[in-house]
């Protein structure tokens, strides 16, 4: 599978999806007016990856800001990962949040309570 590599912009995140390494990374800001347009290819990629994933998929989410429109799309990403996890492949989610950013920690906890994959909450010093 071709990896996805997208440079971040002021309104969209840096993305690295690599099937060879089993790495799924979304970092930066995700505040576009139309988030479906941005996330559709990512969700489609995961649908394909799901068919033959590595024994361990490592997921790193490190967002500074995301809007509510992105929050639904991010849930779609997690739902694909949950399906991989359900099919008995390991999925490790690292949810990064900046020191003092309780809102971002809570956002991670919201996802963790909806998606049945263990999350690791990782605080990063500013």
């Amino acid at each position: 599978m071709e990896p996805i590599s997208i440079e971040g912009s002021p309104k969209t995140p840096t993305v690295k999806f690599d099937a060879g390494e089993g790495i799924i990374e979304i970092k930066g800001r995700s505040i576009p007016e139309n988030s479906i347009e941005f996330y559709k290819p990512l969700v489609d990629w995961l649908e394909e990856y799901k068919k033959d994933p590595l024994a361990l998929t490592k997921v790193n989410i490190q967002l500074e800001y995301f809007n509510t429109s992105s929050s639904k799309c991010i849930l779609d990403v997690f739902k694909k990962l949950e399906a991989i996890h359900k099919a008995k492949h390991d999925v490790e989610v690292n949810w990064y949040y900046e020191e003092d950013d309780e809102d971002m920690l809570e956002a991670g906890e919201d996802y963790e309570s909806i998606i049945r994959i263990p999350f690791k909450m990782i605080e990063i010093a500013e």
Partner: peptide
């Protein structure tokens, strides 16, 4: 579901 407007 997200609405066509993207809101939700």
């Amino acid at each position: 579901k997200l609405s066509a407007k993207g809101g939700g």
